[in-house]
Design a protein around this nucleic acid. Structure first.
Lengths: 228, 228
DNA sequence: CATGAGTGTCATGTTTTTGTCACAATTCTT
DNA sequence: AAGAATTGTGACAAAAACATGACACTCATG
């Protein structure tokens, strides 16, 4: 879920600064200090975004950007170009390099982050915003509402995600740790029994509509969402 | 249904490049190289969007933008400002002059297109200047007024845009960053919490009419405008 | 140049959410 | 049936999310 961001910058201090800011914001930072090792890294672990320094030893950032655009696999990885200064000469090159955004040094971390988020958001594939229906239950990711045969049901964020997951994965049994991975995220450290508590809260919320029986416990294995 | 885009740029090479990219993307391109001929063209064939160079011989781009905003008919034509400068003060100026977005040279065609699409998309659902009515609330984009069952409500510019956006996007939940994109513009670097403050100001303004309950907060997700 | 409106940010209150635990209830083993 | 696992429940403290009020800054206007 967290995006991988590749930082390509030859000056160690700036590279570190960039990587720091990136990780600080919850992204994973990959680092390269020249175009060749960047290419190698890109082929190995396709990043979700590339912060690319304009000037690099050997192959320049512009050249690297061109190559990435030429390759089918890397064709639509967004690139944010880092430039030291905006001078006329660079303008012409910049128009064709295929970068998605530019940022000139010196830059503020906030501006950098804003641009990263903006670019990622633009690229973000639209999630399945479809209305999910199961057995008289309707959950709409878009409006963030749940209702059981007309009656509105309100849930806390976690219960909402949990129900959403269940409704899109009916019939199948999930262990507590699987649910933690899927609903909480695979990086969080919480007790497995916490799942029980949220299952209970979900059932409690569904109770007035009588649909709480959809949340079934499979002793020794986990939970399942299903009619029957 | 293809949109007309007016390119106002004095440097012939860049003008051509812009026009080329614009048509390449399926839009119709109109061209002008100074503010006066731009005005003439605008009055003749109202374009759907204007790409406006910051620096122009004679009347500057900023001045032209101001005039367009002052005129009833051109008041809501979206403008994307093209600027060579990158410092914060100019950015603010550009925005307050009424531009919907701006882009600094050097820019890539990709970036330009992304912004054009973004701006057009933003404008599209709002259609014309029709009076918007929701649940006893009336908002008129033309007169820039809001009233709740006869009682006039006055709002600051930001609250007005926020309410306008909400009224034309009822029921759906928007995250703070989405609201920043939609109401502020996706290039503005402001704290996400700023949204909270403006939500509060909007609620405060709606309170006397009791309609403040339409602005709902969805914990962990954002805000929603809706009855219920 | 003072004034007042409009904004963005911050510090501080308030409310909700959440993870954990202790203990009750249930089911399974022997 | 007793004991061992396993799951359900209610309570609670800590954390997170949100609301609110204050303040500084900018800018157009008089």
């Amino acid at each position: 879920m967290t995006a991988n961001i590749l930082v390509v910058e030859d000056e160690p201090a700036i590279q570190e600064l960039l990587a720091f800011n990136v990780t600080q914001c919850g992204y994973r930072a990959l680092q390269a200090s020249d175009a060749d090792s960047a290419l190698a890294l890109i082929n190995r672990a396709l990043p979700d975004l590339i912060l690319l320094d304009w000037m690099l030893p050997g192959m320049s950032g512009v050249e690297l950007a061109r190559r990435l655009r030429a390759d089918q696999r890397t064709h639509n990885i967004p690139i944010i170009m880092l430039t030291a200064r905006t001078d006329e000469r660079d303008k012409v090159l910049g128009l064709e390099s295929g970068a998605d955004d530019y940022i000139t040094k010196p830059f503020s971390p906030r501006e950098l982050m804003a641009r990263i988020r903006a670019v990622l958001r633009r690229r973000a594939p639209q999630m399945s915003d479809e209305l999910v229906r199961v057995e008289g239950l309707e959950l709409s990711p878009v409006t963030h509402r749940v209702n059981a045969s007309g009656q509105n049901i309100d849930l806390g964020p976690t219960e909402f995600r949990l129900l959403h997951f269940f409704m899109t994965h009916v019939e199948r049994v999930y262990s507590r740790s699987q649910l933690l991975d899927q609903v909480w995220g695979d990086h969080v450290f919480v007790e497995e029994r916490t799942v029980d508590v949220h299952i209970r809260r979900l059932r409690q919320a569904l109770e007035p509509s009588g649909l709480d029986s959809l949340v079934q416990t499979v002793r020794g294995s986990g939970y399942r969402f299903s009619r029957n």
